[in-house]
């Protein structure tokens, strides 16, 4: 059931980070956190989200930032819009694959309203930003009234729409370690139309040492209950020459390491069939892109 009408709810709009934390602590399961609203409001109209309280964090300046320094890498505040990421010169220079994703992301309205933090907390296996962030070895910083904790992003997801974020916690920041300038990165997303969720997505990061793969990180989206890293394939590629045969062998490993479902976007069978091809495209896209300057 979907309606033209948002059901009734209480909207709380904290001004500060501490106020936001105390509100989530107080209301916990009764409340949903509103960042850009591009998922939450749709879900509320469809009846799949029924919060009696919505905590809108839009006024908390501390969340709205994208900062880079060469020592610590990139910090993306939970409220940073995808537009801000798209327009950040630091992102374009040091993490070009994130700009690629922002560029592909849905449409102008969602680009302007959606947030990277929301994309992660929504925890869709098809979330566009999750594979590239996983391949960048991202961490998430969760804040609560009792302090903060930092997790590897890979450990954040539990299942479709499920994360380890406790009801009293807020996603505060997403951090990415600095990426050495000799790294390549690529992202591929196979969709029905330009403005669509992925049937399958792959983000690849690696460096090439004398033409051999090194420190390979491969993440697959929309092929399992959560976005997956591919440790077997990463290990297989380590130290091997970047050539057709190696890539062919690596891509042949993909299909059996995923557990895709059939949904309205595609079929399990198709996703399995194209997993290797998507990985190949992602590697080739990464090779084609000059390493960060």
């Amino acid at each position: 059931m979907s309606t033209r009408v948002l059901p009734e709810f209480l909207l709380l709009r904290p001004d500060t980070f501490d106020e936001a934390l105390s509100l989530v602590d107080r209301y916990r399961d009764k409340a949903e956190v509103l960042a850009g609203g591009t998922d939450l409001l749709v879900n509320m109209k469809c009846g799949t989200a029924t919060p009696s309280i919505v905590i809108g964090i839009g006024k908390v300046d501390a969340f709205n930032r994208i900062e880079f320094d060469p020592e610590n890498g990139l910090a993306i505040g939970a409220l940073a819009s995808i537009r801000a990421l798209h327009d950040s010169p630091d992102v374009a220079r040091y993490y070009p694959v994130l700009r690629d994703v922002a560029h592909l992301f849905a449409n102008v309205q969602l680009l302007n309203m959606g947030t990277v933090g929301g994309n992660i907390c929504n925890a869709s296996p098809a979330g566009d930003f999750i594979p590239p962030l996983l391949s960048q070895n991202a961490h998430v910083v969760l804040g609560s009234a009792s302090g903060t904790r930092t997790l590897k992003l890979i450990d954040f997801f539990v299942g479709p729409g499920k994360t380890v974020r406790r009801p009293d916690e807020l996603l505060q920041t997403i951090t990415l370690p600095p990426l050495s300038t000799d790294y390549h990165s690529g992202f591929v997303r196979i969709t029905r139309t330009a403005e669509d969720l992925a049937k399958i997505s792959v983000a690849t990061v690696f460096s090439l040492r004398d033409g051999n793969f090194h420190d390979v990180r491969i993440s697959f989206g929309a092929v399992a209950p959560t976005v997956l890293r591919m440790p077997d394939i990463e290990a297989f590629l380590e130290g091997k020459p970047m050539d057709d045969q190696t890539i062919g062998e690596a891509t042949a490993m993909a299909a059996e390491r995923i557990s895709p479902i059939t949904d309205l976007r595609s079929t399990s069978d198709y996703r399995r069939k194209i997993a290797g091809a998507a990985l190949r495209q992602s590697i080739l896209a990464a090779v084609e892109r000059s390493p960060a300057q």
């Binding site: 749709v42 139309t193 330009a194 669509d196 969720l197």
Partner: peptide, 15 residues
Amino acid sequence: KYHHLVDYKLLTAAD
């Protein structure tokens, strides 16, 4: 099976 434009896709100018 289809209720929304998320599921039922249309071409856009980009396509």
